[in-house]
């Protein structure tokens, strides 16, 4: 039992080893002035600054406003993209009609549209939310379409053979069948939407993590700048891991190989 726990702990430590080495190299490179410590302060100093930002509540303020923008844009994006994707995926003719437009828009960088959003919505909250909305929209839309299109036709046939109504077919077969693929789109766009938000906040905002990042950089407060970058990295990892864990738990039936021995 104890041996097992130790082995497990060893496994976790091994998984984190590369990160520790990276931080150590960072610390030493700054301490021994391999790089200019003004541009890259040692990790310990950045960590202390980060703690200060947490303690004073400065970080929390920026974090909350960024999260609020993210969630709002994200929610709106999903509310729009999923129903539309289900519709497009189901009506093949409509898909052929709309697909070129979708392909064009999805390959258009969100940031290139930022000036347009600023014209329409100003530099307030709306333009930030709009950027997130746009960033989330296409990945989720395309995954939803793919999810509907790739549903096993024999499942539809089985349901139809039982005389299911169109509404029933949609709620009992199409939606649950497409859900795993839809969720993959959600997970992929979640991390990218945070990246997009940071860029948007850097370009025009007076609050939020992106704004803080830009503010500290232009005021030569480099330890604070690095502290924000660390926070962003942690958020990215946390969001991705928790969504992946949720995905694995919710859609465990997708696993190809049985966990328990089958007869």
């Amino acid at each position: 039992m104890l041996l097992n726990a130790l082995r497990k702990l060893g496994g976790v430590l091994y998984r984190l080893l590369s990160v520790f080495i990276f931080l150590a190299v960072w610390e030493l490179a700054a301490r021994f002035q391999v790089v200019n410590p003004v541009f890259l302060p040692p990790f310990s100093e950045v960590a202390a600054t980060l703690w200060k930002l947490i303690r004073t509540g400065v970080l929390l303020d920026h974090l909350l406003i960024s999260l609020q923008r993210s969630l709002l844009g994200f929610g709106l994006g999903l509310a729009f993209a999923i129903p539309l994707g289900l519709l497009i995926g189901w009506y093949r003719g409509f898909e052929r009609f709309i697909d070129p437009l979708i392909q064009t828009f999805r390959n258009l960088s969100v940031l290139s549209l930022l000036p347009v959003f600023v014209i329409f919505f100003g530099i307030g909250e709306t333009s930030k939310v709009a950027v997130i909305f746009w960033g989330v929209l296409w990945a989720v839309l395309l995954n939803t379409i793919a999810g509907v299109k790739n549903i096993d036709l024999s499942l539809i046939k089985a349901a139809r053979s039982m005389g299911i109504s169109n509404y029933g077919l949609f709620t009992q077969v199409i939606l649950p069948g497409a859900l795993p693929t839809i969720f993959t789109g959600v997970r992929l766009s979640a991390t990218s939407s945070i990246l997009v938000l940071i860029a948007a906040e850097m370009l025009g905002a007076n609050s939020g993590l992106g704004y803080a990042l830009y503010f500290y950089q232009s005021n030569i407060k480099y330890p604070e700048m690095y502290a924000i970058i660390i926070v962003l990295a942690v958020i990215g990892v946390a969001v991705n891991y928790s969504l992946a864990a949720f995905e694995k738990r919710t859609f465990r039936y997708r696993e190809e190989l049985p966990e328990t021995g089958s007869v």
Binding site: D152, S154, L155, V173, P176, G177, Y253
Partner: peptide, 8 residues
């Protein structure tokens, strides 16, 4: 032939 069971 393909069973067509709902995997979820």
């Amino acid at each position: 032939q393909g069973y067509a069971l709902f995997p979820w």
